[in-house]
Each structure stands twice: as structure tokens, then as C-alpha cells.
């Protein structure tokens, strides 16, 4: 599928030294890649191994724990309401993902499939708002949450994150590729715009929705700034915020911190392995706007 990089196919067939040269380069690339991969992996491996060690052993150089302390993981659950943090993070991220996919898909449909005057101007205005840094919006949005009495609540975490200009852009690009004959045929059959949207366009945009869904879920699962300023009660803490306070209070217990980090990362690793194709495509698609 992917074309070879320029320069890989030497035009010296049958020449032994060329074969040797190619072979050498092949090996060199592999050695380099393996070295890189090890550099990437070592911190992760240290984290996993440290999470099973006793506190004294974490500070020693020997990589393998002499005794595997699985109870470290149970200790995390005993010391903080880690299960609660898990639930909060996944609950909030799932709601935001659902709402954002829905609102973005509806807006994208209006921008990609319906004809109306000023459409492209409005769309460009929408896109321009992507340039506004989040930090400019944080302060007024925080004061807004104070006014609406949404500080320290699920709603305050979910609602502001449920609208996205980026998601609208991404799905619009997807919907533009669907042949227009399909909605015309449906319109002739007497389908309403909502029926066309829901029964024709949405099923055909599934790949785009999955991509947007994964990135939205990821972003909100790891979201830090907004919950940090919004959440005061312990039972509303998400994973990142819970981990931060866990570190503040129990920071010297590196083995437990690492056990919590491992548990934080595991759902992400599973998601990545399961949806790698969508993620890679999503990153490459998101850049088309440049």
C-alpha cells in the first residue's frame, strides 16, 4: 500500500556489491529503529516494573522486582477512590464524545450537503475560531460556570466540551466525499432533510464519526486544565486530577504512583491497539486543512 521511500530501490540489479550495499542499509535501518524503539519503551518498562516493587527496591538499579507485590495495585484502591476516578473519566468522556459527534455531524451536514446563501463564509468564520487559544476562553468560561452554578458538577464538565469547530470541520470533509446523487434520490423519494441526514449520510460517515469519536474520547479522558479549575469535591475528580492529588499527598510512594499511572494508561493502550488504523488516518486527515 505504502510506496517505498525514494532511494530504496537501487537500479543495479544482479550486482553483488549493490546487493550487499542494500543488505547493509537494511540492517542499519533496523538497528536504528530497534534502538529508537528501546528508548521509547524503557521508561514504560521501568514504570511497570516499579509498580510491582517495594518502595526501597524502586530506588535500586536492579530492573526486576525480587518479590512481585501485586498488592500495590490494591493499595491504590484503598488509599484513594481510584475506581471513582475511573468511572468519572470514562463517564464524562463518553458523554462528551456522544454529544460532540452529534452536534458536529449535524453542523457538518448543513455545511457539506445543504445549499444556502453565505454557507462558505459562515464556515470560514467557524474555522477561524480554531485559532483562539484555549487559555483565552478558560477565564470567561470559568466565570460563566460560576454564574450558572455549574462549578463542581458533571454538567459543567460535559456541556462546554460538547461543541467543536474542529469536529464540524473533520466531518464536513468526510461528508463532501459522499456522492450527491444519494441525497437527491432520497429527496425525490420524499425524504425530509432529517431523514436524509440520519438514514443516508450518517451511516456513510461512520468512518469519520469513529475517528472523531476516538480523538474526542482521548482528549477528554486526559483533559486536565478544565477539571482542575472546575472540580473541588473528591467524588467528582477525574483520573488526571485524582492522580495529581494522589501524587501531592502520597508522592513519596513512587511504587504506588507508578501502579496508578499504569492503570491510567492501560485503557489507552487497549484503545490504540484496537483502533490504530482510524487513529493514524485521523491524524493525517486533520492536517488537510493546512
Amino acid at each position: 500500500m505504502r510506496r517505498a521511500h525514494p532511494g530504496t530501490e537501487e537500479k543495479r540489479p544482479g550486482d553483488f556489491s549493490a546487493w550487499w550495499y542494500r543488505r547493509g542499509r537494511f540492517t542499519a535501518s533496523h538497528v536504528l529503529l530497534v534502538l529508537m524503539a528501546v528508548t521509547m519503551l524503557v521508561p514504560f518498562m521501568w514504570m511497570v516494573l516499579a509498580s510491582f516493587k517495594s518502595l526501597q527496591e524502586v530506588e535500586q538499579l536492579n530492573p526486576i522486582p525480587s518479590v512481585w507485590r501485586f498488592e500495590n495495585y490494591l493499595n491504590v484502591f484503598e488509599q484513594v477512590s481510584f475506581a471513582r476516578y475511573y468511572f468519572n473519566s470514562i463517564f464524562i468522556a463518553a458523554w462528551v464524545t456522544f454529544l460532540q459527534c452529534l452536534t458536529s455531524a449535524m453542523a457538518a451536514y448543513a455545511f457539506a450537503r445543504l445549499q444556502w446563501r453565505g454557507r462558505d463564509t459562515v464556515f470560514r468564520l467557524y474555522l477561524a475560531t480554531l485559532m483562539i487559544p484555549g487559555v483565552v476562553l478558560m477565564i470567561p468560561n470559568y466565570t460563566l460556570m460560576v454564574k450558572l452554578h455549574l462549578l463542581d458538577s458533571y454538567l459543567g464538565l460535559i456541556v462546554p466540551a460538547s461543541f467543536s469547530a474542529f469536529g464540524t470541520f473533520l466531518l464536513r470533509q468526510f461528508m463532501l466525499t459522499i456522492p450527491s446523487a444519494l441525497d437527491e434520490a432520497a429527496a425525490i423519494d420524499g425524504a425530509s432533510p432529517w431523514q436524509i441526514f440520519w438514514d443516508v449520510i450518517m451511516p456513510l460517515s461512520r468512518a469519520g464519526l469513529v475517528t472523531l469519536g476516538i480523538f474526542t474520547f482521548l482528549g477528554n479522558y486526559g483533559s486536565f486544565f478544565w477539571p482542575l479549575i472546575l472540580i473541588k469535591s473528591e467524588h467528582l475528580r477525574t483520573l488526571p486530577i485524582g492522580m495529581l492529588y494522589f501524587d501531592t499527598v502520597y508522592g513519596r510512594q513512587t511504587n504506588l504512583i507508578m501502579a496508578a499511572s499504569v492503570m491510567n494508561i492501560i485503557p489507552l493502550v487497549i484503545l490504540f491497539v484496537a483502533a490504530q488504523k482510524h487513529i493514524v488516518r485521523g491524524v493525517q486527515l486533520g492536517a488537510v486543512k493546512g
Binding site: 521508561p43 482521548l218 488526571p240 492522580m243 496508578a260
Partner: peptide
Amino acid sequence: FTSGVALMLL
């Protein structure tokens, strides 16, 4: 993919 608070604590 895993970047965030967990990696920073690591």
C-alpha cells in the same frame, strides 16, 4: 498516545 499526567508523574 498516553501523554498526560501519568507520563509526567513517570
